[in-house]
Amino acid sequence: MAEQGVPPVPSPAAMSYPAASVGLPTGPEVLRTYSGAFICLEIIFGALVWILVAASNVPVPVVQGWVMFVSVTAFVCSLLFLCAYLCGLVHMIPVNWNFMDLSFHFFAFVFYFGAFVLQAAVSSLANLMRNENSTVLHLSNHKIGLNVAATIFAFAATVCYGCSMVLGFRRWRQ
């Protein structure tokens, strides 16, 4: 029988790995939080940016290539991040998930802000360069509309990543 007041000796396996630090619930309950809702919106808006830029036939490949890279990469990473919470993998991987959440959303916010600015530049230049003497960029009204819609959804995705970053910062500081 163990003595009173003496803590049990922990096993070496329990001492070798730090416990996972998780601030969000796992499973379907994560979808009931603000962070889960923002991650879902990030996935939806990121997919719309990706689809709309691809549908415009990428008239400025250098600039919109970056927009496509950011939107596809952020889409995949957000989807993996959400799946890790839905499947409960956050309890199996010993990582500070609050810091991972903050750092992921910070970098996604910075990159998406840059992508939004570049997409807005393409949309505004296409609108200004519509006269007949211009050789810079000739777009039909349909492609201009696709680029403007992609700009709006890139802004919405940027705002969602910013809100997720703020919520992640609050969880990390607690």
Rank of each mutant, 00 (worst) to 15 (best):
V122I: 10
F99E: 12
S11P: 04
V72G: 10
S124D: 08
L24W: 06
L52S: 06
L52R: 06
F81E: 01
P10N: 04
N131F: 09
P61E: 02
W66E: 12
A115P: 09
L52H: 10
V6M: 13
L89C: 15
G23C: 04
F38Y: 13
C83V: 15
C40G: 03
N133T: 13
L24T: 05
N127S: 10
S123G: 15
L86N: 00
N133M: 11
V53I: 14
P25N: 06
L86W: 01
A19M: 10
V122R: 02
A37M: 14
L128D: 13
G114V: 12
Q4H: 11
P59Y: 08
L86Q: 05
V62T: 13
L128N: 09
G23H: 07
V95N: 09
V76K: 03
T73Y: 13
Q4C: 04
N98D: 08
L102G: 00
V90K: 05
M15G: 02
L52C: 07
I51Q: 06
P10E: 01
E42D: 08
P61M: 08
Y17N: 13
V49M: 06
V9L: 07
C87G: 12
P61N: 08
A20P: 14
H105Q: 06
M92W: 03
V6W: 06
S35L: 05
V95L: 15
S124Q: 11
N127R: 10
F111V: 11
S134Q: 11
G27M: 04
F75K: 00
Y112V: 09
N96E: 10
D101W: 02
V90S: 00
F113N: 09
L80H: 01
Y34I: 06
A121T: 12
F75P: 02
Q119D: 15
S21Q: 14
T33C: 02
L48K: 01
L82M: 15
Y17V: 14
F104C: 02
N96Q: 06
F107M: 11
V90Y: 00
E42C: 07
V53S: 02
C87N: 11
